[in-house]
Amino acid sequence: MLSVMALCRTRNCRFMMSENGRRMRNCVLLLYQPCHLSTNSKPKSMLSIITSKAKYANEQYERFLERKFPKFYLLYSTFMKGFWMLMTEAKEVGYIKQRMRNEGIPFQQLPYREMEKLRQFRRDIIKAAPVVIISIPPFANYLVFVLMYFFPRQLLIRHFWTPKQQEEFMDIYHRMRVEVYPEIFDGLLKAVPKLSERNLRNQMLQLCTLVQHGTHPQVENLQAVCTAFSGPPLGMKRLDVQQMKALSRVMFLTPHLPAFLLQRRLGSHICEIQNLDCALLKLGVNELSEEELKRACYVRGLNSTHLSKEDCKTWLNCWLQLSSRLKVSEASLLLHSMILLSANYLQSLKQ
């Protein structure tokens, strides 16, 4: 399509001699001739010129890094992509919170994806805040690259991990959870004699023995002992300090806090997961993508890194089935189910 050109008015005049000797001016008036000298077209602003030059220089710099320093370029590109992903999520979270304020929507009534985004973003930003602050001054991002290289798992969040690192670090974090499984089972076994009902003691002992011997329990096995987790000694407000510390490590929370803070944090986090479960039941497990399925299972205690979509879906349905049947006072059972339901699931798939 031809651009609209400015029009100017021009006059071509010729002088001719008439028959009677008088000079006659013959004017040809040409209206609306295209004129390339029009001043209506705005010149490029200085800002746009600088921006385009900077963009070009950055592209050349990235090509140079990719060609000469491929390993460093991988770190550089991962950091830049992660930074923009984090900024995009920050905008989305800001929009969600603004809508919550304007419409008076409580956290519990949000859709599943928005609820999960708020939960995950809060945890991510707490971990990423020091690194983001360090990268603000000019050329300080090179220090961040050094940190990324030497301490990627400890200092960076998933946005700044390569796909290979994500898989590797998820396995490492889950192994850290598995390390405290024996301690949690010991705590459960020590609590069995303190239960008042004999039948409940037998069921608890049977459940612990079942899991310790490598058998994956059914939802009915867990639901049968739910009353043991509503009061002493396994209720949320009656848990032993060592048990709370071990459970905190399973949920990736710091165990180095006073007992009342450990109890409060465990209670708030498992309550948050229960709210997520309610929202997920409304949405439907089948609506989740494979990435969302794996993340949902991992948050609830299962190492889903190497599982198929169908295996994740089967396990998550079992979890939701249990979660939907428990009362608020029985939240401690859901917390312990992060171990009881996940400890032998991978082994049961191989049988």
Score class of each variant (00 low, 15 high):
249 R>H: 05
213 H>G: 05
207 L>F: 06
246 A>C: 07
266 L>G: 06
272 E>H: 08
206 Q>D: 13
258 P>A: 14
248 S>K: 07
205 L>W: 11
260 F>E: 15
225 V>R: 00
253 L>A: 12
275 N>L: 03
242 Q>S: 15
273 I>T: 09
270 I>W: 06
235 G>Q: 04
231 G>C: 13
256 H>S: 14
252 F>K: 04
209 T>Q: 13
253 L>M: 15
232 P>M: 06
222 L>D: 09
222 L>Q: 05
229 F>L: 04
204 M>Y: 03
252 F>M: 10
215 T>A: 03
209 T>Y: 09
271 C>V: 02
230 S>Y: 06
232 P>I: 10
248 S>Q: 07
249 R>Y: 04
242 Q>M: 15
215 T>D: 03
227 T>K: 14
271 C>R: 12
247 L>G: 01
209 T>H: 11
229 F>T: 08
205 L>I: 00
210 L>T: 15
205 L>V: 00
218 Q>T: 09
243 Q>P: 00
266 L>T: 11
224 A>S: 14
205 L>D: 14
271 C>A: 14
222 L>C: 05
202 N>D: 15
241 V>T: 14
273 I>A: 02
219 V>H: 04
265 R>K: 09
246 A>M: 05
261 L>S: 07
244 M>H: 05
235 G>K: 08
214 G>D: 08
236 M>K: 06
254 T>F: 06
216 H>P: 00
264 R>W: 10
261 L>F: 09
257 L>S: 10
264 R>M: 13
230 S>L: 00
233 P>A: 10
270 I>F: 03
272 E>K: 06
214 G>R: 04
256 H>Y: 12
244 M>G: 07
223 Q>I: 11
228 A>K: 00
268 S>T: 11
226 C>V: 01
250 V>I: 15
213 H>Y: 02
221 N>H: 15
240 D>C: 02
255 P>L: 12
211 V>E: 08
251 M>E: 10
221 N>W: 01
216 H>F: 02
218 Q>I: 01
